[in-house]
Every structure is written in structure tokens, then in C-alpha cells.
Amino acid sequence: MSLTLQNVSKRFGGVVASDSVNITVPKGKITGLIGPNGAGKTTIVNMITGMLAVSDGQISVGGRDITHASADEICRARLARTFQNIRILPDNSVLENILIGFHRHEKCSTLAAILGLPSARRESEKIVKMAEELLQRFGMSALADFPAGGLSYGHQRKLEMMRALASEPEFMLLDEPIAGMNDVESDSLAELFQELASTGMGILLIEHNIRFVSKLCEYIYVLDGGRLIAEGAPTVVLRDPEVMAAYIGGEHA
């Protein structure tokens, strides 16, 4: 089972942000997606998660076509994401930010929720417990009651990851998850990503830090100007002349 993009394109008026892109994200592995600024990486994630309409091509997960599904349906198809420009809920506490991640699993009836019946209360208590376990796993238990808007960058990124994990995805799309973190923090996240992959999760990792990507991924894709210019094992791909040129900014700048 995998997440696949077949000839996926996106045009913004005249700008081609994505040009017939083919990507496969298998389960149980971390797949890298790199490319210079404006290459179209975030656009790919936005299309997969239903936040941008796909102009052409097909996206499917485990054989199921999700090309034109809505964002909330795609979450229920077990895809989750984090955002490059951090999007936490600033009015809510850290704990509450994670609770909303469990939304997909909350099954009590609307009437039970409105009337505060025991079934609804039990469900709320259960997800509070699960959220606390996630906080513990990320070493942020002490921050549970703090307003999320006041957290440091690194903590906000981790909070987004906990929230995404709460939905129990089979595929996780991480858009520059270690931007603004120090080496200690990013190393501990590297371990976490490997652990998640080893439990069967498929991860698409977008990252500018080449060292980080080469360490975690067996397979990477390189985008430039909306077009895939290379793919394969990091050691091979990173020596590709076209890739080097794209990064140095030579002929593609």
C-alpha cells in the first residue's frame, strides 16, 4: 500500500507550480522531497491534502482515488500533515491543540455531545489521556496548560506533529519539520521519524537540510520549477549535475 501521484500538475494562471509530477510514498519508509525555494514542494502537499485543487493527474492512497476529495475526507483516509508556516490554534492551550487532532476518532452522537451524556464525557476523558501520553512522548508534559501561541518555534512544530499523530495517520506529510530547531532537537526528531516509519507509517519529508534528508531517506525526489529533475538514492541523486546546478542556482535561476 502506498500514496501515489500520477502526472500531477498545478497551474496558477501562467505559473506552472507542478508539472506532471510522479511520486510514490511507500508505507514504512521515509521518502524525501527536496528542491530550491519556490520549486513547488508545498504545492504538492497542499494538493495531496485537498487544500489546493489539482489541475491534472491523479492522486491515490492504497488504490483509492483521492484526487478531488475534500480535506476532511482525506484526513479520514488516514493522511495527516504539518504546515511549513506553523499553524497552531493560538487561543487554545497546548493540550487542547492536541485534543482536536483526535476529532476523527470521536464517535459519540451529536445529541450526547450537546447534552453532555456519559458516553460523550467518557470519550473526552479518553482522548485527554491519549493527548497526555503524546505530550509525555515529546517531553512537553509540563507545557500542557500553557497557551499554544506563546510557545517557542521548536515547540510549536512539535505540537503540530503531536496533533497530526493524534489522528493516527498511515501517511504523514512533513513540510520542513525541523526548520528553526537546533541539532539536539532535530536529532531527537530524526529518531522519532525512524520509529514511526518502523511501525509502518509512510512519511513524505520535505526538508532543506540535505544532511538530515540523506540520513533518513532511502529514496528522494528533487523538484525544480515544478518539474521532477531527479529521483533515487540520496548518494546518487545529490551527485547529479542537474541537481547540483539547481541548488547552486546556475542555469535554473
Binding site: 487544500m51 475534500s70 480535506a71 499553524r87 497552531i88 490554534l89 482536536i100 487532532g101 476529532h103 497530526a164
Partner: peptide
């Protein structure tokens, strides 16, 4: 966008 991405 966040709400929708979490299945709401």
C-alpha cells in the same frame, strides 16, 4: 485549513 486537515 487546520480544522479541515484534521478531519473536521
Amino acid at each position: 485549513a487546520v480544522a479541515a486537515s484534521l478531519g473536521v
